[in-house]
Write a protein that binds this DNA or RNA. Structure first.
Lengths: 141, 141
DNA sequence: GTGTATGCAAACTGTTTGCATGGAC
DNA sequence: GTCCATGCAAACAGTTTGCATACAC
């Protein structure tokens, strides 16, 4: 296969890769959807009881800085992050109301209307909500 | 003019109208855009030094409950509220990057596409960003 | 060997809550 | 007169920071 873009192999950029950071990146990568730092932190501590929240916060901040993770919203007061493969490409997110899964979605905005209510529009944020295939077809909770 | 809908005159619904609540509603009404509770609270305290943050939080919560105020996002960790005249009608918000002004905007989502990435979409949130007429025509900051 | 990441705990911010009191209705 | 809204302060959750130490490079 073609060689991976550099940052895919170096989620921390020039930063050092410690066991904790490796764990954070690994768990974030395999996380089924979006997560709060708190949630990720719990998962990290299951595998490394000594890992502290502060470290996870710092690791997540480093990953977000590299664009390897993305802020995708908030859930009752906590910031939601998700591993986002879409990179720089203009996209949005669709959130499953059932399981919390988050995926990238095409931009559903019709015409990039440049003026609304007299405002000159330069950018927009869209979040779609619904049910993922599993939650939609599976038996309701 | 036709008589105002009831809630327009009674922002607190059946709740009691105290001087503090009157002040909160008044300031929110005349606020040029969206505000955090903290900002509103500061403004309230300028006119009533004894008013406490807790009271403002409670008043804002009551107003939001009545649909008289609306959560329109967040600004560095704080919830943003705005007086919203659009009421129940499906709409979104356009935020001025210059002055922070917030106005209701038509829904720019093309077709209410019911499926995206296999998800069954039930609702969406859109926020537009740009410059309001004043900030767009006025000299750049 | 150098300098960054860690762990711990304390600090900080935004928000909520409990409780006794005052005041709107 | 009743009961809700207030003010105060303490509690709370999420997040950040300072500092000495450990360890990736």
């Amino acid at each position: 296969m073609p060689q991976q873009p550099d940052h895919a192999c170096r989620p921390y950029g020039a930063g050092r890769v410690t066991p904790q950071r490796k764990l954070v990146a690994q768990l974030a990568e395999s996380w089924p959807g979006a997560f709060t730092v708190e949630e990720l932190s719990s998962a990290v501590r299951e595998q490394d009881r000594a890992a502290s929240v502060a470290t996870v916060y710092r690791a997540v901040a480093a990953l977000a800085e590299q664009g390897w993770l993305e802020r995708v919203g908030e859930r009752h007061g906590s910031v939601l992050f998700a591993r986002c493969a879409a990179g720089e490409h203009h996209h949005h997110h669709v959130v499953c109301d059932g399981c919390g899964r988050v995926e990238a979605a095409e931009c559903p905005v019709a015409s990039p209307a440049s003026t609304v209510s007299g405002f000159v529009i330069t950018r927009h944020e869209v979040t779609l909500y619904g049910l993922c295939p599993e939650c939609a077809t599976g038996t309701a909770i």
